[in-house]
Design a binder for these strands. Structure first.
Length: 104
DNA sequence: TACTTGACTTTAG
DNA sequence: TCTAAAGCCAAGT
């Protein structure tokens, strides 16, 4: 199983209504410092609709700016549709990690 | 075939 | 406490 396939396998395990961080996913596949490639693997996600890459966020709960989907707004909509609550301080929009972070 | 790049995190200064 | 740099690994050029 390739590195990217392991990434997809882990991300697919994230339940609806929960989110995980890049570092968390990287740690679960055995490479805690490979978070950069976790993002890269999701970027070239061949399983759209299968791998919920919108459930993967930054360590602080914020979303990837300008890259994901149609932008962070789109990712936010997907997560809110699953019941994930966002904290909007006017500047940045972040997921409430204390409540919604996935505990593997 | 080899080099560069990329949705990041962590550690050291 | 804040800033800077290193490290991870596969895909694209």
């Amino acid at each position: 199983m390739s590195f990217s396939q392991r990434v997809y396998a882990v991300v697919k395990r994230i339940p609806r209504g929960k989110v995980a961080t890049y570092g968390q996913v990287a740690a679960l596949i055995g490479s805690p410092r490979s978070s950069r490639f976790v993002g890269f693997a999701l970027h070239s996600n061949p399983y759209q609709g299968v791998v919920p890459c919108h459930r993967v966020v930054f360590k602080d709960g914020s979303l990837a700016p300008g890259f994901a989907f149609g932008g962070p707004q789109e990712q936010r909509k997907l997560l809110e549709a699953e019941g994930v609550h966002f904290l909007d301080n006017g500047q940045t929009v972040t997921v409430d990690m204390t409540q919604y972070q996935w505990e593997a």
